[in-house]
Simulated scan of single mutants.
Amino acid sequence: MTDTTVTRRFEIGRVISGTFSVIGRNFGTFALLALILGGLPNLLLSLVQISFVGHQQVFSPQAIVGSVVGLVVMIVAAFVLQAAIVHATVADLNGRRVVLGESLKVGLRNWLPLVGLAILMTLGLMVGFVLLIVPGIILAVMWSVTVPAKVVEKIGVMAAFQRSRDLTRGRRWAIFGLFVLYVIAVWIVEAAIMAAFMPFVLSKGASAPEAMAGFNSSINLVSMVASPLIATISTLVTTAGGATLYSELRGTREGVGPEALASVFD
């Protein structure tokens, strides 16, 4: 199928540079949003788990209830963060000043529909990955801008899936390449963070069995502490990147500039 509305070529490099430019220009605001809505809930859940592990009460009713409550708070906060970062990214691309309160308001307004969207997307991807992996990858690429489409265009959940499908048509191989680069980058970041914590893991002066047990325990604790940091960075980059990708797709497919995304400010 020939796309006759393209005004400029879709480029992965422009999406990547645009993503980090937006983050760089608004690092303080983005970092604060990510800390409050991403890192803090993850850290609190990790501390709850560490506390119960230390008291050997992992399967107690209190531990289960605490973990479930913490997980729910973390999930809701994550969706508020996604919508807030999408709004802030679009504001920056539109040439507007990013206002923390406005972005949070958009996040709070959209978290419930995004939860429903995430449930449907997860179910679809699970079915796709069960069917020999490839269909799941295709669906992930096809639905890659569902969240920004929902937030920016204020459309229904099902309409957001269709909108993402339409926008990504003809660009899916390039978007898949972007996904591969992202996965590699996440691996590198995870390795770097874990390496930074390694000096605190290594123990001295213990017998071999004790040293091994201590090492394994320390690794588990480090993973619990480092995971919020990794999750925060990952969410920040993927959400800002998704909004930038959405803007790029609309620009190359529909010939519109960032000013066409202004409906998110109404």
Rank of each mutant, 00 (worst) to 15 (best):
E210F: 09
F200W: 11
A192C: 03
F179Q: 12
F200T: 14
I184T: 02
L181H: 10
S218T: 12
N220S: 13
A206M: 15
A196D: 07
V186H: 10
V225S: 01
M224V: 05
A211D: 04
S217D: 10
G205C: 00
A206P: 12
S223H: 08
A226D: 02
E210C: 07
E190R: 12
V180E: 03
L181K: 06
P228M: 09
V201E: 09
P199I: 04
F197C: 03
N220R: 11
S203A: 06
S227H: 13
A213E: 00
S223P: 04
A211H: 03
A191N: 02
A206I: 08
V183I: 10
F179P: 07
Y182P: 00
S207K: 10
A196G: 15
M198R: 15
E210R: 09
S218M: 08
I184G: 09
A213H: 01
A192M: 08
P199L: 01
V189F: 04
S217R: 12
I219K: 13
N216Y: 03
L221I: 13
A208L: 14
F200N: 13
L181E: 08
S227P: 13
G177R: 00
V180K: 06
I188K: 00
V183H: 14
G214L: 04
N216P: 10
V222H: 03
V225H: 05
I188A: 08
F179S: 11
V201R: 07
A192L: 08
F215C: 00
V180Y: 10
A191R: 02
E190C: 09
N220F: 14
P209W: 02
I219Q: 13
W187R: 15
W187F: 15
M224R: 12
L181M: 13
A196E: 02
L181N: 07
S203W: 05
A185K: 09
W187I: 14
L221Y: 15
G177N: 03
N220Y: 09
I219P: 07
S227I: 08
E210G: 06
M194S: 13
A195Y: 02
A192N: 02
I188V: 12
E190K: 11
L178T: 10
F200H: 12
F176I: 05
A208D: 14
V180M: 09
M194N: 14
S223D: 02
P228S: 00
I188Y: 06
S203L: 10
F179T: 08
A192P: 06
L202V: 14
I193M: 02
V186M: 08
F197L: 05
S207Q: 13
N216F: 10
S227Q: 09
S218G: 15
S207V: 09
F176L: 04
A191Y: 04
L221R: 13
A185G: 04
V225G: 00
L178P: 04
N216M: 10
F215Q: 05
